Computed example of a mutant assay.
Amino acid sequence: MSVAVIQFGGSNCDRDTVQALASIGVSAELVWHEDGLPADVDGVVLPGGFSYGDFLRAGAMAAQSPIMDEVRERAREGIPVLGICNGAQIGCEASLTPGAFTTNESARFQCEHVYLRVENAETPWTRQYDEGEVIELPIAHGEGRFEIGDERLEALEADDRILFRYCDAEGNVTPEANPNGSKHAVAGVTGDRDHIAVMMPHPERMSLPDIGGTDGRGVLEAFV
Score class of each variant (00 low, 15 high):
residue 41 V to T: 15
residue 101 F to Q: 07
residue 47 P to S: 05
residue 120 N to M: 09
residue 41 V to W: 06
residue 192 D to V: 11
residue 174 T to I: 03
residue 33 H to Y: 04
residue 182 S to T: 01
residue 41 V to D: 00
residue 62 A to N: 09
residue 12 N to Q: 03
residue 128 Q to N: 09
residue 223 F to P: 01
residue 216 G to V: 12
residue 1 M to R: 12
residue 110 Q to C: 14
residue 27 S to W: 09
residue 119 E to G: 08
residue 117 R to W: 04
residue 55 F to P: 00
residue 211 I to Q: 12
residue 15 R to H: 11
residue 20 A to G: 12
residue 145 R to Y: 10
residue 37 L to M: 04
residue 190 T to R: 01
residue 86 N to L: 04
residue 7 Q to R: 14
residue 68 M to H: 04
residue 121 A to Q: 09
residue 129 Y to F: 14
residue 59 G to V: 05
residue 116 L to D: 10
residue 32 W to P: 13
residue 26 V to I: 07
residue 167 C to T: 07
residue 211 I to W: 12
residue 15 R to K: 12
residue 172 N to T: 13
residue 185 A to L: 01
residue 182 S to V: 07
residue 58 A to D: 11
residue 161 R to F: 08
residue 140 A to Y: 08
residue 171 G to L: 09
residue 165 R to V: 02
residue 64 Q to F: 04
residue 104 N to M: 13
residue 97 T to F: 07
residue 69 D to C: 09
residue 151 E to S: 12
residue 13 C to G: 01
residue 101 F to R: 11
residue 82 L to V: 07
residue 156 L to F: 05
residue 138 P to D: 15
residue 125 W to C: 04
residue 98 P to I: 07
residue 220 L to G: 02
residue 155 A to F: 04
residue 201 P to C: 04
residue 2 S to M: 14
residue 46 L to A: 08
residue 213 G to R: 10
residue 16 D to P: 11
residue 10 G to E: 00
residue 135 I to M: 03
residue 19 Q to G: 05
residue 171 G to R: 01
residue 3 V to Q: 10
residue 15 R to S: 12
residue 29 E to N: 07
residue 212 G to P: 03
residue 111 C to L: 13
residue 190 T to V: 09
residue 177 A to Q: 03
residue 166 Y to L: 04
residue 62 A to E: 01
residue 176 E to V: 07
residue 76 R to M: 14
residue 34 E to F: 04
residue 13 C to S: 04
residue 130 D to I: 00
residue 196 I to D: 08
residue 197 A to G: 13
residue 73 E to A: 14
residue 117 R to T: 13
residue 128 Q to H: 14
residue 29 E to Q: 14
residue 19 Q to A: 14
residue 114 V to C: 10
residue 183 K to C: 11
residue 71 V to Q: 02
residue 156 L to H: 05
residue 131 E to C: 10
residue 177 A to T: 09
residue 116 L to R: 12
residue 18 V to Y: 11
residue 67 I to S: 06
residue 18 V to A: 12
residue 110 Q to I: 15
residue 224 V to M: 06
residue 64 Q to W: 11
residue 6 I to D: 13
residue 1 M to H: 10
residue 11 S to R: 01
residue 6 I to N: 00
residue 102 T to F: 13
residue 159 D to N: 15
residue 45 V to G: 01
residue 221 E to I: 14
residue 57 R to E: 07
residue 202 H to W: 00
residue 199 M to L: 08
residue 174 T to R: 11
residue 224 V to Y: 05
residue 169 A to K: 13
residue 42 D to R: 09
